[in-house]
């Protein structure tokens, strides 16, 4: 394990914990952005430059900007923060804990699938190779995914639309 990998993993875990533990939601979002950066660093270590760049553009550059946008509008602070009853917190802790238990139990004995060094293509993460694989071997799933995204987009536009008679701003 290279020192870079250890450093990235350390920062990733720390910032992921920060997302959950930070009191201020804006801090949580910033920690989440940092987590995405460390994940992009991991992609780079795996020689997947395209995935690293797209992860930054889509998650850090677009989705998290919208998250931050919404959270800034909410103007959360400690006085107006809704307090959940103790029972709900207890139930949440039990549910989350059992999910963790199940995940650990399921993954405990799994050994990562090995790869064949003779047939492994180290350039597979490069953008041109990835494009070839996507459009040659996985053309149908790729196009289906794009239709799914289009449907989601149309759906969100429909949901965001005002009913007839309602005022548009």
């Amino acid at each position: 394990m290279s020192p870079l990998f250890l450093f990235l993993s350390f920062v990733a875990l720390l910032s992921a914990l920060g997302v959950v533990l930070a009191k201020n939601p804006v801090h949580s979002v910033l920690f989440l952005i940092l987590t995405f950066f460390t994940l992009s660093g991991h992609y780079l270590l795996l020689n997947a430059q395209f995935l690293a760049a797209v992860n930054i553009i889509v998650y850090a550059g677009a989705i998290m900007v919208l998250f931050l946008f919404v959270i800034m509008f909410l103007n959360l602070n400690e006085e107006t923060e809704p307090h959940k009853p103790a029972l709900a917190k207890f139930a949440a802790a039990i549910a989350g804990g059992s999910l963790l238990l199940i995940l650990v139990a399921a993954l405990r004995n799994v050994s990562p699938a090995g790869y064949d060094p003779n047939s492994f293509d180290s350039q597979i993460g490069m953008v041109d190779r990835l494009g070839m694989v996507l459009f040659r071997d996985y053309a149908l799933p790729f196009e289906l995914a794009s239709i799914l995204l289009l449907a989601a987009m149309v759906g969100s536009v429909m949901l965001g639309k005002r009913e007839t008679g309602e005022r548009n701003f």
Partner: peptide
């Protein structure tokens, strides 16, 4: 893509 990513940040 790198330039585009940094600009979006």
């Amino acid at each position: 893509l790198y330039v585009f990513g940094i600009v979006s940040l």
